[in-house]
Design a protein around this nucleic acid. Structure first.
Lengths: 182, 182, 182, 182
DNA sequence: TATGAATGAGTCTTCATTCAT
DNA sequence: AATGAATGAAGACTCATTCAT
């Protein structure tokens, strides 16, 4: 069985974002490989966590690029952002929840860059008079990550269809739950 | 220094909801007592987690009662729910994130009851034509918990004023981030 | 250095029969392995004590078989019993002194079986008019275990030659200390 | 309830000779007093063990005096020794089994003195041609302590009548278990 | 003197990690 | 690359001990 680094990391992120206390043994099992192999490729738990952080950030950067969030209508940009981010929601959930990452400067910086890009989008929407002024861009960012993570867990647990998740997040973020005014 | 069980649990919930891997030592320090004292009152980590789960559920039940979420205008009921829940948002964040609780039947049942009350409110809002039909009550519940937890963390980290948090969650849930809706 | 389960148990029995309060660390050191390795093979102190009890009983059963204590002249049977038991005297001393074993049904039953075989030998000797009637089989059994344990400790402490120990016990049990009896 | 130091020590010796791992709590309960009281009178577990050792030795010295083991017929002296020692058999069992005592010089010396007096008796018996030459005085001493301890436990467990115990030990030591020659 | 709270110290236990096969 | 053994390091837990009531 060949070793698929990205798949292993995906499985690890999915597990760790739900159970931060998972042992290396459980992680290896979840990824379908042996402890020793896991250790060979990621020498130490810290190395694994770092790799998860770095890959997660790289993925997010790619997705933000693909979504061209700096361009066009902010509302549509938010939709594209969510659509693009959803396939890597497992990594985002991990990044959002894992506090150990705070001790890793490189990861921290990378995440700050990602977060800044997202915040900039929200600011741009506010400046164009499209987004509410009374919700801080920082909070909108946090809320977005929280909702994407929540939807990822719902999908994982079978409480939501994978194909619905992007819309569930987009609609709530953009329109709220009220039927009213629209 | 006298031992305040509820305060200890509050501190423990705040810490554990952020770092599920926190050691008993860290928890004790966060609560300002010694490891041994923590163990005397909660014999074993499981006991502590269980106590946290049970207290969190009891608190939520109280708050749902206080908010009278089964009564009146669903929109106002949601606002009251969020207002009331915010003071115990630390416990809610813990309940939302701690997967070990799944192994404790009593806690599980309690949480299911709380969750059902919340879902019922969302269903009621939909039946009255006030809430959108295309967002499942289950998802709205998850989103609500996720946003409350996120706001609790923002407050903890000093990125949001405590007094703003309820409004931040309410507005996003009810109105979404778009200005146009008003 | 390869792991020899029986040797580890032998060392543990020798130590625990003398110092019931010995820590797992001391036991591991006495066996020439690390604490962690000891724990890997015997997960928890109870498991170690149980294993010691079960092995001790199995050894005694074997030795009673080998000594054919149910056959032939009771006096000779007692001599054979002592001769055979001496090589496992460390385990017998452990079984004799360790009261934690009382909480382990399987060990308890095994020991009761061993004890019954020994008592039966003493009863048989009495019935054949060879052993004194005024010393109860139960007491003779206790005395035998106590003397074997005592001799094991004397050998351990270098106060008695290993090769003498069986005779020391046999002679005292059978003939008493008086010279006149001969 | 007045505090009876000797009674407390007697109870403690009885418990500790059987369960060396007994906690201070259990010891206090066995003696019918509170932990704090036990600690007031014996500041620390070591102090308690030391007090037990010293009292046990003092008792034995008294009993050896009372038995006048240095005088008269060695056989009768052995009988008197056993008769006198039996009431303090609990302490003797403790002294015999407790290895922690080896670290206490005063106790060690005291015990050496007691042991020497007992050994001297056995030597005297051999010199007078009454005791067997092939059983070393050291071994006879060990055997005597072991049998007295064993009988104490049998009495404690209800497997032997208190009034029989001295005879059970004397007869076995002096005459052995054989009916034959006498 | 008894009781219950609090804690430092030390033991028990687990886990990440390495190594040999 | 997989497996099982071995272990240091770290966390969980218990107990002796002190203190306040």
């Amino acid at each position: 069985m060949s070793f698929d680094r990205e798949q292993v990391l995906r499985d690890a992120a999915a597990l760790l974002s739900r159970r931060a206390t998972a042992s290396m043994d459980e992680i290896a099992k979840a990824a379908g490989i042996s402890r020793a192999t896991l250790h060979r490729h990621f020498p130490g738990r810290d190395a694994l966590v770092r790799a998860l952080g770095l890959l997660g950030i790289a993925q997010m950067d790619e997705r933000l690029d693909a979504a061209r969030i700096e361009e066009g209508d902010p509302v549509e940009a938010v939709r594209r952002l969510i659509d693009e981010a959803m396939p890597v929601s497992g990594f985002l959930a991990f990044l959002y929840g894992e506090n150990q990452l705070y001790d890793m400067p490189e990861v921290n910086e990378g995440w700050a860059r990602v977060d800044e890009r997202v915040s900039a989008l929200f600011r741009r929407g506010q400046e164009q008079g499209l987004f509410r002024y009374d919700l801080a861009p920082t909070w909108l960012g946090e809320a977005l990550y929280a909702l994407i993570a929540a939807s990822a867990w719902c999908v994982q647990d079978g409480r939501m269809a994978r194909n619905d998740s992007a819309r569930m997040v987009s609609e709530l973020m953009l329109g709220g739950m009220l039927r009213s005014a629209s």
